[in-house]
Simulated assay, not measured.
Amino acid sequence: MSVAGDETGGSQVRRRRRLSPGKRLPAAPIVGPALVLALWAAASAAGQLDPAAIPAPWTVLRTGVHLWTDGTLPNDILTSLRRAASGFAIGLVAGVLLALAAGLSRVGEALIDGTVQLNRAIPALGLIPLFILWLGIGETFKVAIIAIVVYIPIYLNTHAALSGIDSRFVELAEVQGLSRFQFVRQIVVPGALPGFFVGLRLGVTGSWLGLVVLEQINATSGLGYMMFQAQNYGQSDVILVGLVVYGIFGLVSDSTVRLFERRVLSWRRTLSN
């Protein structure tokens, strides 16, 4: 009986283990992009793609090297990075502070949450004409729009995580006599971090999406401006160079946030780890 029971228990354990996704694959984030690149190269080599519309990967690479050596691409990249970083930093701080104020105070929630939800219902890029009238057509309005695109997902996810903290933890903190600062550090921050990182990843992606559009509006430099000029001259290879650079930046920034998230939240036992 004991042998049969052990065999039954072992089979149940094996069945349970099959439900798990298993170990993380090495270099998992780049497997998908590498497959797309391989299919693109194969289709180009087989003559299935129109070179005027979708140039081959080696043509795009050659164009990128040329743009880099003549100094055009480095200057545009630095300009885009500066715009994205400025807007992202402002949006990050605003999203976290507003989420804390709304999540830890009923008065703050009444004043902030409805306004943010209204702002969320209005497409951020639809605010461009109004912001141009308010801030002019220079760099300020571009940074402001990126900040709005960033702060909304950070606020929404952080506020949702704060609202989802189990009330029993709050009661335990009150019984233990924790101060406000101790309560925030020991209960609020750990409870809000998972939602915060989700919002952070969405905010990072949103900053690049907003930048693509904004740099085509009265800009004289940046990746979006380079792509807009290439459109006027029918240079699809230059457009693809810009898209590839945007994609690399987006993939690297998202992977960095995910790595940081796994390190900070290493105490959680989830399917992802």
Rank of each mutant, 00 (worst) to 15 (best):
R180G: 08
N218W: 10
E174W: 12
P51D: 04
R17S: 12
S163N: 02
V36R: 05
A53T: 14
G10L: 13
A89P: 01
S105P: 01
A219I: 02
I132K: 06
E171M: 10
H159Q: 07
Y155H: 02
L111G: 11
P29K: 01
G91N: 12
R262L: 06
L214N: 15
A53F: 15
G203Y: 01
D237Y: 09
S272R: 12
S20I: 12
V189P: 00
K23E: 14
V3L: 14
R18E: 12
N218D: 07
I154Y: 03
G136I: 05
A219M: 09
P51G: 02
P153E: 03
G91S: 06
V150D: 12
T115M: 10
P74Y: 01
A99Q: 02
P51L: 00
A43P: 03
G47V: 07
S255N: 12
V198K: 06
I187E: 04
T256K: 02
Q186L: 13
Q48T: 13
D166H: 01
A230M: 12
L251E: 12
P123D: 04
L223C: 02
L61T: 14
A99L: 00
A147L: 10
L243C: 04
V212A: 15
A53Q: 09
R62I: 07
D254F: 10
A85E: 14
D50N: 10
R83F: 08
F169L: 14
I146V: 08
T59E: 03
R14H: 04
I30P: 04
L81V: 06
I217T: 09
T220S: 15
L178N: 09
I90C: 11
S80A: 07
G126M: 07
I217P: 13
V36P: 06
G206L: 00
A161M: 00
L97D: 00
S167G: 10
S236K: 11
R83I: 05
G91F: 04
G224R: 00
P51H: 00
I137Y: 06
Q186I: 07
I137H: 08
A144S: 10
G191W: 03
I54G: 09
I248K: 12
V238M: 12
R262I: 13
Y225H: 14
V36A: 13
T205S: 06
L135S: 01
V252Q: 12
L73S: 00
L35M: 04
P26S: 04
A173W: 15
G222M: 08
I132Q: 11
T140Q: 05
V257N: 00
P74R: 01
E261Y: 06
W68F: 15
N119K: 08
G108P: 01
L92E: 05
R82I: 11
R185N: 08
A192E: 09
Y151A: 13
V264I: 15
G64I: 03
S163C: 04
S207D: 04
V188A: 01
I217A: 13
L211G: 08
P74W: 00
R106N: 07
I248M: 09
E215W: 15
Y246E: 02
A28I: 04
P129L: 04
L135H: 05
L214R: 09
Q229E: 10
E171G: 08
A52L: 12
F249N: 05
R17C: 06
L172A: 15
L118V: 15
L49N: 06
V264G: 11
G191I: 07
G114W: 06
I112K: 04
L243N: 02
V245P: 05
F131P: 02
A38E: 06
G191E: 05
R18L: 11
L193F: 09
T59N: 05
